[in-house]
Simulated assay, not measured.
Amino acid sequence: MADWGAMLRAAVAMGISPEAFWRLSLKEWRMLTVSAGAASMRRRELDEMMRAWPDDRRLSIRRAGRRAREGGGSGGGAGGVAGARRACGVLD
């Protein structure tokens, strides 16, 4: 859980008004508070996040197509987009 009080106090110490603090996006807040040498997200972490929260169905179709091409998908052995669409239940 975020310590909003500590974050607000840090913002005020940086000269950011409370009103401006509450308008900041999380990305903006991180840019203001994370040191320049901080580690960025690793590819593995990005892949895990993408699996946990896919953007849309097209992403799932692309992944199913990749699995089908690599021999790990369902689709009757057919690879490519057609196999991916079948694996995701998308009908033309």
Rank of each mutant, 00 (worst) to 15 (best):
9 R>H: 02
56 D>T: 08
42 R>D: 11
18 P>C: 00
71 G>A: 03
77 G>W: 04
9 R>A: 05
21 F>Q: 05
67 R>E: 12
68 A>V: 09
75 G>H: 13
33 T>G: 06
74 S>A: 14
43 R>W: 10
75 G>R: 13
19 E>R: 11
54 P>A: 05
67 R>T: 04
33 T>N: 02
7 M>Y: 01
2 A>L: 10
51 R>P: 00
36 A>C: 07
17 S>V: 00
66 R>L: 12
28 E>Y: 02
67 R>F: 13
37 G>K: 09
65 G>Y: 05
73 G>I: 14
40 S>L: 08
62 R>T: 13
30 R>E: 09
41 M>H: 03
58 R>I: 02
69 R>L: 14
14 M>H: 06
35 S>E: 05
1 M>G: 14
21 F>K: 01
48 E>N: 08
12 V>H: 02
3 D>W: 03
48 E>H: 07
22 W>C: 02
64 A>P: 02
34 V>E: 02
53 W>I: 15
27 K>T: 04
32 L>A: 05
69 R>G: 03
40 S>Y: 05
67 R>C: 04
6 A>Y: 05
15 G>I: 07
16 I>T: 04
4 W>K: 10
28 E>P: 00
54 P>M: 07
38 A>H: 06
54 P>E: 06
76 G>H: 06
7 M>D: 08
84 A>S: 11
24 L>I: 06
2 A>P: 03
63 R>F: 15
17 S>N: 00
88 C>K: 07
4 W>T: 08
49 M>Y: 14
45 E>F: 12
31 M>T: 10
80 G>H: 12
81 V>M: 15
58 R>D: 14
4 W>M: 08
53 W>S: 15
62 R>E: 15
77 G>N: 08
73 G>L: 14
50 M>I: 09
15 G>P: 03
44 R>H: 12
13 A>K: 01
46 L>N: 02
40 S>D: 11
78 A>P: 00
47 D>Y: 01
63 R>I: 15
32 L>M: 05
70 E>T: 09
21 F>W: 00
49 M>K: 09
20 A>H: 02
89 G>H: 07
81 V>R: 15
18 P>R: 06
66 R>V: 12
25 S>L: 04
63 R>Y: 13
62 R>D: 15
5 G>L: 10
89 G>Y: 12
41 M>W: 08
68 A>K: 07
11 A>P: 04
19 E>G: 00
69 R>D: 15
46 L>Y: 13
33 T>F: 00
51 R>A: 08
57 R>P: 00
46 L>M: 13
54 P>F: 12
64 A>Y: 01
44 R>P: 07
2 A>I: 10
68 A>G: 09
10 A>C: 01
39 A>G: 07
42 R>F: 14
82 A>Y: 03
76 G>S: 10
30 R>V: 07
65 G>V: 01
88 C>R: 07
35 S>I: 04
52 A>T: 05
5 G>N: 04
40 S>F: 06
